[in-house]
């Protein structure tokens, strides 16, 4: 149930392989990879800088993973979130979940991303031709996280 916050890129294939390595009880691995888009609401993005709250970030991610493990039967979970300056096309975040059956893996992977987006202390600042600006939080992200308050697998 490992969580990493790092500047370095990650190898999504290697991370997916590690989720089921040496565990024949795994019947399903679901994963999500988030990338820096080249456009945001029409603005051309030259680069993006991710700021975070060292210490709290790791605690918040570990808490989200623990919550997922209490809701679903999971065999392994991996969360990686990059920080620092990233170019369009760069990987930002990896969430991978291994479980016996696909239902748990799909649900837990989506749950972790939805909670990460609203509870983990990261902030994005975009660089555009018109200057730098901080990304606003989206109400759709709050709505996505809120549905887990009542929905269960």
């Amino acid at each position: 149930m490992a969580v990493s916050v790092q500047e370095a890129d990650f190898d999504a294939g290697a991370e997916i392989a590690a989720l089921s390595a040496d565990d024949a009880g795994v019947g399903a691995v679901a994963s999500f990879v988030g990338f820096v888009r080249e456009r945001h609401d029409g603005d051309l993005i030259q680069a993006m800088t991710l700021e975070h709250y060292p210490g709290m970030t790791e605690k918040a991610l570990a808490g989200i993973v623990a919550e997922a493990c209490s809701r679903w039967q999971l065999r392994r979970v991996r969360v990686i979130h990059r920080v620092g300056r990233l170019q369009p096309g760069a990987r930002i975040v990896f969430v991978g979940v291994a479980s016996a059956h696909r239902g748990e893996a799909f649900a837990a992977c989506e749950f972790i991303m939805d909670y990460l987006k609203t509870r983990a202390p990261f902030w994005k600042k975009e660089e555009t031709p018109a200057g730098g600006h901080w990304v606003d939080a989206r109400e759709t992200d709050d709505a996505a996280a809120a549905r887990w308050a009542t929905d269960k697998l």
């Binding site: 988030g34 991710l50 975070h52 709250y53 709290m56 979130h81 930002i92 975040v93 991303m113 990460l116 987006k117 609203t118 509870r119 983990a120 202390p121 990261f122 902030w123 994005k124 901080w134 990304v135 606003d136 939080a137 992200d141």
Partner: peptide, 10 residues
């Protein structure tokens, strides 16, 4: 004690 705007990671 930390203060910050709504988070925008992921």
């Amino acid at each position: 004690v930390a203060f910050f705007p709504p988070v925008t990671g992921g």
